[in-house]
Amino acid sequence: MVEVANSAKLAKEMNRKRVRNQRNWFFVFISPWLIGFLIFTFFPILFSFIISFTDWDMFSSLHFIGISNYAKLFAKDDVFVISLRNTFVYTFMMVPINMVLSLAMAYLLSFHLKGMKLFRTLYYLPAVVPGVASSLLFARILSTNGLLNKALAIFGIQGPSWLLSKTYVLPGFVFLALWGVGGTMILLLASINSVGEEMYESALLDGASRLRMFWSITIPQITPVIFFNLVTGIIGTMQTFTQVYMMTSGGPDNASSMIVPYLYKTAFTDFRMGYASSMAWVLFAIIMVFSLLILKSSSLWVFYEEEVR
């Protein structure tokens, strides 16, 4: 009996050592990522939150001023208010159009027709073009004598100066963003192609039209991807930077100014890093609120197959 007890105790001790050894090796292998995350992500985020309560200019010592930066944003900074409004307008224009267009394109490209792979490739290619290259290209397309206005002139329409007009500059950015709609389209296309054919066959036997099948079968089945595209679309659009920085620098008369380009100018041109950090945290709070609202509403319209099971 004593020998059995000793053997059991020895086995338990060896098992503890094995678990401890596995845990130690786990931390060894994860340490490069963990160190990188702490140095390049966590500590910068924490530091930006701290300096948002200071008037730090990156050269002098930190001087805490409380919530003065946050109070100034909405009370005294007209450019920030304009940038915030433009960001909201651009987001509410861009995201719905992007969702509808990408869904329509994905559905049309889901049909198994001859040459469809070529069309899928062509529609997706703009999504992989770098943002700087796209901005330089569309700066020419949207210029007063650019390709878009020349195309409109064929139909007798006099196009505006897209990037010089306070009225049309934001729609011009929407036009540029829609050129790269292939990124969201490819996700929806993959989701549509994963819908079981037996559902469509059953609907056809019941006499359902293609429109009815699309609305009652396709849409509910791909709502998780629609949900993902909606959240990431809002997050990405509200952080628009490259187009504004490369094409208009916020002009004309701040008509295309948005939060992130204004934040960048405040931080690295005016050297008001504390004030810029407060803008970043306000933007973070706004994006967080929108994301939580969408997440909260998802239970009403997002369908997960596992829930049925």
Rank of each mutant, 00 (worst) to 15 (best):
S60G: 13
V169D: 03
A8G: 05
R120D: 06
S102I: 05
L170S: 10
E198H: 15
V260K: 06
M238T: 06
S161T: 14
F26S: 15
T269M: 14
I287M: 14
L118C: 01
S202L: 14
G172S: 08
V79Y: 08
G131M: 06
L103D: 00
I67H: 02
P130M: 13
I157L: 13
Y107L: 08
T121L: 06
F26V: 11
S83P: 00
M273V: 07
A8H: 12
S60T: 08
F138N: 04
P261R: 04
I226D: 09
A190P: 09
L142A: 05
I30P: 01
V260S: 09
I39A: 14
A133I: 15
T121S: 13
S52C: 03
L204N: 10
T218I: 04
M247T: 11
F227N: 04
S83E: 00
F92I: 07
A75G: 00
S7Y: 11
K12P: 01
L147F: 15
F155K: 03
I294R: 12
A11H: 11
P130F: 07
F271R: 07
R20C: 13
L163W: 10
I154V: 15
L292I: 13
A255H: 03
M14K: 13
L283P: 07
K76E: 15
T144A: 10
F26L: 14
L148A: 05
A208F: 01
Y90F: 12
H63G: 09
L109Q: 03
W33T: 11
P261G: 03
R120L: 04
D57M: 09
F284I: 09
A71M: 10
T248A: 12
S48P: 12
F74H: 10
I51Q: 12
F59M: 13
F37M: 05
T269I: 15
V302I: 01
I235L: 15
G172A: 11
I286S: 04
Y123F: 15
A280W: 01
T240M: 12
L147W: 13
A127L: 03
K76L: 09
T240D: 07
N15D: 14
G250H: 05
S299W: 05
S165A: 08
M273D: 04
I222D: 04
F271W: 14
F49H: 08
N145H: 09
F228V: 01
M99H: 00
D57T: 12
N21R: 10
V89N: 07
N6K: 15
L125W: 09
L113F: 05
S60H: 04
T121D: 06
F47S: 13
F175W: 12
L263K: 12
F119N: 01
D77S: 01
P171M: 15
S256K: 11
A5I: 14
N6C: 03
A11Q: 15
T41K: 12
T223P: 06
L211Y: 14
Y264C: 02
L103Q: 00
N69P: 05
S216C: 12
I45C: 15
L263C: 05
A267W: 07
W33H: 06
T266L: 14
Y90A: 02
V282G: 02
G233Q: 03
L46T: 11
G159D: 09
K114Y: 10
V289M: 13
G131W: 06
A208P: 05
E3I: 08
Y304C: 06
I141L: 08
G251A: 08
N21H: 10
E198A: 10
K76T: 10
F214R: 02
